[in-house]
Amino acid sequence: MPDKESEKGREPTGIVLTPEQKRRRRSRSVAIALVLGGLCLLFYIVTIVKLGPNVLNRPL
């Protein structure tokens, strides 16, 4: 297994993203997270609205 010191000096291989590309990827990830969070909230609220007072009415 190569040690970390020898890895440091080596040129990176494969696709190397520019800082701008990394920034864009990060902003896309944040947007996806916000959309998923919003969807969870929407499903939760609609469930409460549809069930109404029955949301607490369940046999123990």
Partner: peptide
């Protein structure tokens, strides 16, 4: 050119789009 990426092999692997 880098951001467009249309002529690079990376275009298929990495998205270059902003939100």
């Amino acid at each position: 050119y880098e951001l467009t990426g249309a002529e690079t092999g990376a275009a298929e692997a990495v998205s270059f789009a902003s939100v």
